[in-house]
Write a protein that binds this DNA or RNA. Sequence first.
DNA 1: ATAACATATGAATAATTGTTCATATGTTCA
DNA 2: TGAACATATGAACAATTATTCATATGTTAT
Lengths: 110, 110
Amino acid sequence: MIHDAHKNIVEETKSKMPNTDTLFELADFFKVFGDSTRIRIMCALFEQELNVCCIADIVGMEQSTVSHQLRVLRQENLVKVRRDGKQSYYSLEDEHIQKIFEMGLEHILE
Amino acid sequence: MIHDAHKNIVEETKSKMPNTDTLFELADFFKVFGDSTRIRIMCALFEQELNVCCIADIVGMEQSTVSHQLRVLRQENLVKVRRDGKQSYYSLEDEHIQKIFEMGLEHILE
DNA sequence: ATAACATATGAATAATTGTTCATATGTTCA
DNA sequence: TGAACATATGAACAATTATTCATATGTTAT
């Protein structure tokens, strides 16, 4: 029956998928890449570690905005901080970021 | 002077970055991955092409919700549709998707 | 200790976005 | 043609999120 076929496809597909919690986490992870300010921050950090006010100047936004977004990036383990005197220097934490960027760029430049 | 050093870093970094428009597009592209419903839809489509009501059953959401999200995925060229009678069969359009998923999963499973 | 600077954080606001309901469009078959 | 089904779409609502302002925290040097 067609109805059974439908049911089978649904059950079979569900059984092959990673568990739902993982996929929710995955979405939360990609959410971080879905904001242009954060994208530009990460992009700037490809070159070298930078302190907050440099980043703010590079992306052309308030220091406060940048601090908030850096916190988001920290929470997802995408950047790390190093304190040096009055300044906080941020750098990329994860080697997947570059590859994810590359994939994305390849896609949109097609 | 320290101030000049700052300025140099800012200008040099900016000059090495992709242009801003591209980075905004990139953010919009990743935005699509930042929703758990869309993530689960794409994940289901890794296995095989599926029609809308199968997808709705798999992700456990309204047909209408799924249709709306499929439109988003279509607009970013991530899925394609094939009409067969009353049904619309969706499949993945792009080979980058799998790699992006893999990178993301590797990151969150660390 | 205090002034000056860098960064972080809380609260408020504005904007974006996901979901649902209701309904329209498109397709098949009697 | 009309009934039944699959999908798409518009409007409304709820929820999330990015940004800003104001201010707190932390650090250095006088």
